[in-house]
Amino acid sequence: MTDMSLYEFIYRARLSEEALDRAGRISSASLSFDHQKAREILGIDVLDAEHVARAEKMSFVYTTVAAFENSVRDLIKSILIEALGEDWWNLAVSEKIRRAAELRMEEEKKIRWHVQRGDDPIRFTMMPNLANIIAQNFEHFEPYLHNIDWVRNIFEIVERSRNVIMHSGMLSDRDMARLGSLVRDWNSQASI
């Protein structure tokens, strides 16, 4: 490599890094989290200790469900982009699902003082509709997921657990074990 081509390579790499940062790339540095500072900012110390303890236990369930949902969104998007191209959202998603997600996006845009979920409509698509997108395009997912009934069953149970914790409920250890087993099964099957 000549000095000029090395310089060009490094310069282009730096420009790419800057573009990724401007686009909202999450870096490992931005993922570091000061739990004590968050407790202070959120005023957790003024809340009932029993409620806090129960919520903290469920925070692990929230983490599992949120990561599962986002991994499903990423899977859907990557498979459909590969199969249909960049216009996959319009080509593969029913008008009803598109409209619901796009309405949520528009509603969030009106609240400019609060951070939004993102600018991709798949981020505004609810879990039952994620299963519907997979079902409506199953020919593209079948090599990875093999059985739409299995997919729907997992989504139904994850959604049930999600609804309990999102409305301040507590899952039993048995429910958490079931959720963990399903997430592991999904991850083993859906890995591409």
Rank of each mutant, 00 (worst) to 15 (best):
D3R: 13
M4S: 09
S5R: 10
L6S: 12
E8S: 09
F9H: 10
I10W: 08
I10C: 06
I10R: 10
Y11S: 12
A13S: 15
L20A: 15
D21Q: 11
D21F: 09
R22P: 02
G24I: 04
R25Q: 13
S28W: 01
S28A: 09
S30C: 03
F33I: 12
H35P: 02
R39F: 10
R39I: 08
E40H: 07
I41S: 07
L42D: 09
L42V: 10
I44P: 00
D45L: 07
V46R: 11
V46F: 12
L47Y: 10
D48C: 09
H51M: 12
V52H: 03
V52K: 04
M58H: 06
V61D: 05
V61G: 02
A66R: 07
F68G: 03
V72K: 01
V72N: 02
R73F: 06
D74S: 15
L75T: 11
L80P: 03
I81Y: 00
I81L: 08
E82K: 11
E82R: 09
A83Y: 04
E86N: 13
E95Y: 05
K96T: 11
I97L: 06
I97T: 14
A101P: 04
E102A: 05
L103W: 03
L103C: 03
E106S: 12
E107S: 08
K110L: 14
I111Q: 10
M127P: 01
P128G: 07
N129E: 05
A131K: 04
N132R: 11
I134E: 01
E139G: 06
P143V: 06
H146S: 04
N147I: 05
I148M: 07
D149L: 13
W150K: 05
V151H: 01
R152L: 02
R152S: 02
N153A: 12
I154D: 02
R162E: 05
M166I: 07
M166A: 12
M166E: 08
M170D: 14
D173L: 12
D173N: 13
D175C: 00
M176G: 03
A177D: 15
R178M: 14
V183S: 03
D185F: 06
W186L: 06
W186S: 02
N187E: 10
N187L: 08
S188K: 14
Q189F: 04
A190L: 02
I192M: 03
